[in-house]
Amino acid sequence: MVTETVPVSRPGRVKTLLQEMVKNKISYLFMAPFMLLFLVFTVAPVLTSIGLSFTYYNILEAPRWVGLGNYRLLFVDDDVFLIAVSNTIKFAVVTGPVSYVLAFLLAWLISQIPVKYRFIYTFFYYTPAITSAVAMTVVWTYLFSGDRYGLINTWLIKLGILNEPFLWLQDVRTIMPVLIIVSLWMSMGIGFLSFLAGLQNVSKELYEAGAIDGVKYRWQQLWYITIPSVKPQLLFGAVMQIVFSLQVFDVSVQLAGMPSPLYAGHTIMTHSFDYAFIRFEMGYAASIAVVLFLLMVGLNRMVFKVLGSKE
């Protein structure tokens, strides 16, 4: 005897979403202010930038449709943009993983010390992140100043390593390493605090259970218990670090100038700023911003596949 299986029709996604919103209407009402601000100040500007990237727009005249002309010019004729992309990727490849691992290790070490001392260490490591980039670059400009009064030049001359001052912020070989060093110093930001908060909330029962199962050393606890327990914080920190690495702008402009010597410190953000607020070619600047946006989205998708989960 053969029985026919009748396919069960599933409601559409929109209908399911509407039913869910009606069922939990109070929760969605609480979310409404944030969603409204998110749509107005995040979604709408992104969609506007995508639209403007296909136009010629100089603020004074109405946008004029040019199709893919901006993108063709960007990738074919704009050599400075290719330099900016190369510099940004080099910067992100170094500062991203290094500052991410460094922030997690420092947060883990701080979580191991007594509670009454944690605030002091957290304050010292987090202060560079909340200090304005202008104030921090004043300090670093003094350190890397190219004259004899620069602190690093003074030390190196006294030690006999240098015979004359070295132009740290004018030499194309040292501009990017200096930017990386300064950015690493300022990278203990929101990701660092999220790591610290997640580590403090790991249940002690997990460590007790691990000790029964044979986990004895701190590094074993870190690998088998701590890291799996803070995966949401690891994901958040990775996303924030990608955004921080690809949006480098203030440090580059303040230290290396705009434009920097032979564009050695030129990044995608500085290139977009140049065309938007100096040349007032908003359509072309929007196409640069769209490329940066797609680069961020692609990297974040990779991070979600590695650290994300269905939940």
Rank of each mutant, 00 (worst) to 15 (best):
176 M>W: 05
172 V>I: 14
13 R>Y: 08
36 L>Y: 09
213 D>V: 08
291 V>H: 02
98 V>E: 03
201 N>Y: 01
126 Y>K: 05
260 S>R: 10
45 P>L: 11
121 Y>F: 15
211 A>F: 06
246 L>D: 07
124 F>D: 02
140 W>I: 05
169 L>D: 02
67 G>C: 01
178 V>F: 06
118 R>N: 05
44 A>E: 06
59 I>C: 10
241 Q>V: 08
202 V>W: 07
63 P>D: 03
247 Q>E: 10
166 F>T: 04
101 V>Q: 00
225 I>H: 09
249 F>R: 07
71 Y>A: 01
297 V>E: 03
80 V>S: 06
259 P>W: 09
281 E>P: 01
286 A>G: 05
23 K>V: 09
300 N>C: 15
211 A>T: 07
238 A>S: 15
135 A>V: 14
181 I>Q: 03
304 F>I: 15
273 F>S: 14
22 V>L: 10
188 M>K: 00
269 M>K: 10
220 Q>E: 13
295 L>P: 02
115 V>W: 09
261 P>M: 10
69 G>E: 04
207 Y>S: 01
100 Y>C: 06
68 L>F: 11
102 L>D: 02
280 F>G: 06
100 Y>F: 15
98 V>T: 09
290 V>F: 00
165 P>G: 07
6 V>K: 14
16 T>C: 02
43 V>N: 04
231 K>S: 02
7 P>A: 12
139 V>F: 01
285 A>F: 04
51 G>D: 07
309 S>Q: 09
122 T>F: 14
84 A>D: 07
214 G>L: 03
207 Y>M: 04
133 A>R: 02
282 M>F: 14
42 T>A: 11
63 P>G: 05
101 V>A: 13
291 V>I: 08
241 Q>L: 14
56 Y>A: 11
